[in-house]
Design a protein around this nucleic acid. Structure first.
Lengths: 238, 238
DNA sequence: CAGTATAACTTGTATATACATGTCAGTAAA
DNA sequence: TTTACTGACATGTATATACAAGTTATACTG
């Protein structure tokens, strides 16, 4: 038993998702939660702040914590999730094809994106995601070999993140994302079922470890009709 | 002088943006910041946690707080900002045209999106944003009259958010966003300079007040070549 | 010299206390 | 009846203390 406030966070989050605390209703007061979880008020407040941050509740001074409609979890590209984690909530009709797996010396563009040292090598992985029989997503990953020694097709077909976190025991921490719309490249047309579509949605991802070191640059290229990005944003009053 | 930890947050954030604390470097330790700001450690930590949440720094246990490259602020659609706030960082060649401003009884779709009571009225606002002489963004806003009594063309041309927060003294707090790609409608082609483009990027926004009441539904429709969405996401280890 | 142990310093977690501020219902006064 | 006040209760902020855990440099030991 460790990280008391995270345990409390998860338990309340679970109850919200199970409908035990329905949207629109109020959570028990901090005082009541203190007794229920045998914790101090600050610890309860840490858990509640996490819930607020992730869009589960809205805190109102003097009133209480209102449960929000967590429809957010439709399609959580918003957070930092791997395709495998995501796909598990999408049903079972999805396949991943590893089209390319090479250890390369990066060209200037990739070198710049990854802030890679000259001479250092980079894993280049192409993966295509097929859902309901259609090739809809084309992921181009570049990972620094410096952090990931060995990479097999099996790992790529399953989940690179899982391998990094479970096998290598490294903690993926945060990412900068950028979403733009482009015209399809030759590669896009080769690997995806693009038919007549004249655009692809490109999600560029710069992924960092715990210690703020950049280890991955990814372009996730989506067919526009199947793309959806959901976000929860709080206004920062400056 | 109030909200000590927010004051500290803003001061450090400013120093990071000014380059006084350059990316890659470490922030002073919590102990040093305590002395510098005459605050307790918990207060400093609240400020630092805000900075971490917003992508300014990465905290590493045992080491310190590393300043991140805040290129995030290129185009902060990620947060919850109005076009006016956003545009001020884009230079001066932008114009807003208020194409429509009506008080309507919402149709079923809008009624559902806003969870509006039957019989209640809703402001319908169409605005077109022109940048560098091109009509690039088409905003369709629906606001509950229940919260916003009076709305003029002047307010719409300037900033509805500014009016709500400064004049009406209500606090806009959070939003749920959804980004998808659609084929242009007749309206899109009428109001925007779409030329040959066969897609528009649609950002759907559900905007809430402080007390978790929904007051606005917006569709912000962008020409794909000018659209860019930047986000900072932390991985939540469940 | 190499390796290890330790001490100093860093951030992380948990608790307790005090007071400020916002909400709301019930009571007393006009 | 209406208004104003007050007290109970909710969350917000600021502080202090204690210990846990990760990092790093130093000093010690073989």
């Amino acid at each position: 038993m460790q990280n008391k406030y995270l345990v409390i966070y998860r338990q309340i989050a679970e109850k919200i998702q199970d409908g035990e605390f329905p949207p629109g209703e109020k959570l028990p007061s901090e005082h009541e939660l203190m007794e229920a979880f045998h914790a101090s008020r600050e610890t309860i407040r840490k858990a509640l702040n996490q819930l607020a941050q992730n869009g589960f509740i809205q805190k109102v001074q003097g009133k209480g914590s209102i449960v929000l409609d967590a429809a957010k979890f439709d399609f959580p590209v918003s957070g930092l999730v791997s395709f495998k984690e995501l796909a598990s909530s999408l049903g079972n009709r999805h396949v991943t094809y590893v089209e390319k797996l090479e250890l390369i010396e990066p060209d200037k563009n990739v070198q710049k994106q990854l802030q890679a040292l000259p001479g250092s090598k980079v894993w280049k992985v192409y993966r295509v995601r097929e859902i309901d029989g259609e090739k809809i997503i084309f992921d181009k990953d570049y990972l620094k070999q410096m952090y990931i020694d060995n990479l097999t097709e099996k790992i790529c077909a399953s989940s690179i993140y899982e391998y990094i976190e479970n096998e290598l025991q490294m903690k993926i921490s945060f990412a900068k994302k950028e979403i733009i719309v482009e015209e399809p490249t030759e590669e896009d047309r080769e690997y995806m079922d693009l038919d007549g579509y004249s655009n692809v949605v490109v999600v560029k991802n710069y992924v960092y470890f715990d210690d703020a070191s950049l280890f991955q640059y990814t372009e996730s290229r989506h067919r526009p009709d199947k793309f959806k990005f959901v976000d929860f944003a709080r206004r920062t009053h400056t």
